[in-house]
Simulated assay, not measured.
Amino acid sequence: MRWELSEEQTDFRSTLRDWLRDRCPSPVLREWLDSGEYGAFERQFAAAGWFSVGSSEEIGGEGGGLVELALTAEEVGRRVAPASAWFGSMLAVPALSTTPDAAKELLADGVTTVLAVPAQSVPGGRPTVSDDGDGLVGSVAGVLGADRARRMVVPVRHRHGLALVLVDADSPGVQVRGRVLTDRTRTVADVVFTGATGVSLATDPEAVLRDTALRAAVLTAADSLGLAAQMLDMTVEYSGQRKQFGVPIGSFQAVKHAAAEMLVQVESARSIVYLAAASVEVGHPDAPLHAAAAKAQVTADVAAAADTSLTLHGAIGYTWEHDLQLYYKRAKLNQQLFGTPTVWNERIAEALGLCAGEEPHSSFGQSFDKVSP
């Protein structure tokens, strides 16, 4: 099945692509990465109004939904833009739906509010922060974009069950410790709470985290889609320039077949991602399956496509000076981000009753504990 975008969505994607090409060219991107100035891009991104796309007007957004957010993530991935804080903020938006002032400030001014969950795990696992009556205690490892967050939505255990608490990142009792990733276009940090206080959000925390898990799956897959589309373009261009035996390597049958396989992966990924985004947005009964399939299949296929692209580029693809290394590392991280393909495939099998002794149901299981970045 081929998913068709509306004319408005196509125009939106084209406009964003042009904006990103102008604001995030490779030389500028490399300056940001070399200097560690990751906030420069996101400040421009927020100032141009892109933070508010995909959120309802009731909370200060520009309208649209998860499909528009997926289009945004796709184009951000195409430029390997350093947008960890934007990504983390978009995961936090559902939790802020009952706190319009905080949501409006985030969407209008880019006041980064990230969801404090481990980036290596599916959102919704057992919280590692508790409220003992004297403030929040515990830590969350590897929170995406936490190094630049001004606020955090923290899943918390307390005597009444699960809660989501909005905490200022610079308040007493909060420590943020940055971590270094192989993928320099993304940032994570460990967050430690030692008696911090915050405001409980009036939401159904379990429902919010379930929805957020699907949202994370779709947006990660969309980012990988953008990476794959650009790696395909780079590979085709290089194959037409590099010559062996006096002819472009793109004329060799083996190279043609490999590029054709990459094209199939890109086109199939596009349909899967857009369908999953629309399904989650409308609350379709099979939305958990669609989102899980997007995360499992697309991120795995794009990681494989990155290997193919690296092979077809030959020795130059391994060099620091070539941009392919940025796409390759990000594709590999996306495969692990918010749950590996294995974890999401297990969720599909569980939901369909394919596990021994299991009946089909829509409840999703626990997250995994550790990955290599």
Rank of each mutant, 00 (worst) to 15 (best):
V174Y: 13
V174C: 09
Q175T: 13
R177Y: 00
R179Y: 02
R179K: 13
R179D: 02
V180Q: 13
L181R: 15
T182W: 01
D183L: 06
R184Q: 14
R186W: 13
T187Y: 04
T187I: 06
V188H: 04
V188T: 11
D190P: 12
V191F: 14
V192D: 07
V192E: 05
V192L: 05
G195R: 09
G198I: 09
S200K: 08
S200V: 04
S200C: 07
S200E: 15
A202V: 03
A202L: 07
A202D: 15
D204Q: 06
D204F: 05
D204Y: 06
D204W: 08
E206I: 02
A207Q: 14
V208I: 15
V208N: 03
R210M: 00
D211S: 13
T212E: 01
T212F: 01
T212L: 00
A213I: 00
A213W: 00
L214D: 03
L214H: 06
R215H: 13
A217Q: 07
A217S: 08
V218Q: 11
V218I: 09
L219H: 04
T220W: 05
A221W: 06
A222T: 11
A222G: 03
L225Y: 06
L225T: 15
L227W: 08
A228I: 15
A229R: 15
A229P: 02
Q230A: 10
Q230R: 15
Q230M: 15
M231L: 13
M231W: 08
M231N: 08
M231P: 05
L232P: 08
E237M: 00
Y238G: 03
S239A: 15
G240D: 07
G240Y: 11
Q241R: 15
Q241M: 14
Q241F: 14
R242T: 10
R242E: 15
K243L: 13
K243F: 12
K243A: 14
Q244S: 14
Q244W: 15
F245P: 00
G246H: 06
V247M: 10
P248S: 13
P248W: 10
I249K: 12
G250K: 05
S251F: 10
F252R: 09
Q253K: 00
Q253C: 00
A254H: 02
V255I: 11
V255C: 09
V255G: 06
K256Y: 00
H257F: 01
A259S: 02
A260D: 12
E261I: 01
M262F: 10
M262W: 04
Q265K: 14
Q265C: 12
E267T: 12
S268W: 01
A269N: 08
R270P: 05
S271K: 01
I272A: 04
Y274V: 00
L275M: 05
L275W: 11
A276H: 04
A278C: 02
A278M: 04
S279V: 04
S279Q: 09
S279G: 05
V282H: 11
V282C: 10
G283R: 07
G283C: 09
H284E: 14
H284V: 09
H284N: 14
P285C: 06
P288A: 02
H290V: 03
A291M: 11
A291E: 05
A291T: 04
A292G: 04
A293S: 09
A293M: 07
A294E: 04
K295E: 03
K295Y: 03
A296V: 07
A296F: 04
Q297W: 11
Q297E: 08
V298M: 01
V298C: 01
V302L: 05
A303S: 15
A303H: 08
A303M: 06
A305V: 13
A305P: 03
D307G: 12
D307M: 09
